[in-house]
Simulated assay, not measured.
Amino acid sequence: MKNIFQPAVTSEIIERINHLTPTTPQLWGKMNVAQMLAHCNVTYEMVYDDIHPKPGPFMKFILKLLVKGLVVSEKPYPKNNHTAPQFIIKDEKQFEKEKARLIDYLNKTQALGEAHFDGKESHSFGRLTKTEWNNMFYKHLNHHLSQFGA
C-alpha cells in the first residue's frame, strides 16, 4: 500500500482530488462528489477537530474487535460497504469548501509525518501503529477517489 506520509503520495492524492469537479458522477454508491469529500473529511475531523462523540468503553471494545481489522488492513474496501453513522452525509455540501478542507487535512497530516502518528490514539480503535494509520488514511481516500473515477 502506498504511504500517505510520503510527500509524493500526498501530492498524488491531492492531484486526484483536483481532477474532481462539482459534477463528477459517482461510479457506484449514493453520495455525490461534495458529499464524498465531506465523508472523507470525517476521518480527519476525528483526528484533529474533536467534534464527533467518542465511543464509550463497550462500543470501543466492539469496534476494536469487529471493525478495526477491516479499516486498518491493506485489504481494499468493497463497493457499497456499510459505514458508521457519523460518516453518513445526507445533506448537500459545498464542493469547493469540502475539497479545500480535505487538502488542508492532507497537508497537515503529511507535515506532521508518520512519527507523529506512530502509537497515537485513534478515536475509535485505540492506539494504532504508523502503518495502521497509513492504511486507514490511504485506503479510505483511494476507495472514494476511485468511486469517482479519480
Rank of each mutant, 00 (worst) to 15 (best):
E45G: 00
N80F: 06
K130T: 04
N3Y: 07
T109Y: 05
C40S: 14
K79G: 08
P85G: 09
M36W: 04
E96I: 08
Q26P: 03
E15K: 15
H144T: 02
P53W: 11
L65E: 04
K30M: 12
D50V: 07
I62A: 02
E15F: 12
V9W: 01
L65M: 12
K97C: 08
P7I: 11
K79Y: 12
K30T: 14
K54S: 13
N107V: 06
Y77W: 13
F117C: 08
V9Y: 01
L141V: 00
Q35I: 12
L102M: 06
L63H: 09
G69T: 10
N18T: 05
N32A: 03
P85V: 06
P7Y: 09
R127V: 11
P22I: 07
F5V: 02
K97S: 14
K60C: 09
N135K: 02
H140Y: 02
K68L: 02
S73G: 10
F87W: 07
T131C: 04
E12F: 06
G69C: 09
D49W: 07
G126M: 03
K30I: 11
W28D: 04
Q147I: 00
G56D: 07
H116Y: 12
M31Y: 10
Q26C: 07
A84L: 15
L141C: 04
G69K: 12
A34I: 06
V47M: 09
K93S: 03
S146I: 09
P78C: 05
V47Y: 08
L128H: 03
G119A: 05
L112K: 14
K30E: 11
T21L: 07
P78I: 08
